[in-house]
């Protein structure tokens, strides 16, 4: 027993290493798992508050840019309202009553922390479960383009798994011919202005500058502009194309985002959960 103790003591650096390294790996794997029960991230009150307070100067300096983007968005919305007002309703035969079914509601949120330089980028916003945010909700930017999905939620903060993350796949359409593919970032491309669409079948003809929008299959509302095709069909040697897309959204200057609440999300999920796993 005494010899064992001497042995352990002599090589204590190694045994401590094993213990602590295993702990670290366990934490990493837990964080990579889908079901996380971890609160030590930027949704944490202390960390979130620190980021909020530290970003004051940056926010102030960016006010004019934010103002411009809001004015532009306002102009766009006013144009849309005017267009709707000029519809001659008497001429229409049937009018669909859409007042009761606003499927999507938008909630604006301020970006507290953002990163674009890492392999897996996480954004923190200043809204949480107190504002009705839950995991998995889609997030778009206030200007143009998509941001990602809600990841972890605390009472007053939430983190977004940005598009610039290894686990983010978003189903998109090419607007012109409705070709469906999934938008990914990474796999050799680590420019925050670009992403790839994979799994578009080879027979679709695409050209530079084609608009890419979100598809019906994603949890985003369909038709949100994502980006423009900048390189059609990188040869991969199988039946699918790899398409490079320049994103509309500038991740480096993200200030305000919209979290989209889908009124029917629960209903859809409940229905889909009934389908037995047929794979």
């Amino acid at each position: 027993m005494r010899n064992l103790w001497i042995f352990l003591n002599r090589y204590n650096a190694f045994f401590f290493f094993i213990i602590f390294f295993t702990l670290g790996i366990v934490l990493t794997i837990k964080n990579n798992a889908y079901q996380r029960s971890v609160t030590l991230n930027s949704t944490n009150k202390v960390v979130g508050d620190a980021y909020t307070n530290l970003n004051v100067v940056k926010r102030y300096l960016n006010l004019s840019t934010v103002n411009d983007s809001l004015a532009r968005e306002n102009a766009l919305l006013k144009t849309k309202v005017l267009a709707l007002q000029n519809i001659d309703t008497a001429k229409d035969i049937t009018l669909r009553d859409t007042s009761g079914v606003a499927q999507y509601t938008y909630l604006s949120a301020r970006v507290v922390k953002n990163s674009i330089a890492l392999r897996n980028n996480i954004i923190t916003i200043n809204r949480g479960s107190a504002d009705g945010i839950a995991g998995g909700m889609p997030v778009i930017s206030s200007g143009n383009g998509i941001v990602g999905y809600i990841r972890d939620v605390s009472e007053h903060f939430a983190t977004i798994r940005s598009l610039l993350h290894k686990d983010t796949y978003i189903s998109v359409n090419i607007k012109k011919n409705k070709a469906v593919g999934s938008l990914i970032w990474g796999d050799g491309n680590f420019d925050y202005r670009k992403a790839y669409i994979k799994d578009v079948p080879n027979h679709f003809k695409l050209s530079m500058g084609d608009t890419v929008i979100t598809s019906n299959f994603s949890s985003f509302p369909a038709g949100i502009p994502v980006g423009k095709v900048s390189n059609t069909g990188i040869a991969k040697g199988d039946n699918f194309k790899l398409i490079e897309v320049v994103l509309f959204n500038d991740f480096s200057a993200l200030q305000y985002v919209y979290v989209i609440k889908n009124k029917f999300a629960k209903e859809q999920q409940a229905l889909e959960a009934k389908v037995p796993d047929e794979q």
């Binding site: 290493f17 390294f21 670290g24 366990v26 934490l27 990493t28 964080n31 030590l40 991230n41 897996n120």
Partner: peptide, 23 residues
């Protein structure tokens, strides 16, 4: 490592790396 992880949202990654560094 845990403190850096909290701010980077990479739970456990920096922790494991720091332990290796100390070893």
């Amino acid at each position: 490592g845990l403190t850096i992880d909290a701010f980077y949202d990479t739970y456990g990654v920096h922790t494991a790396a720091c332990v290796v560094l100390v070893f």
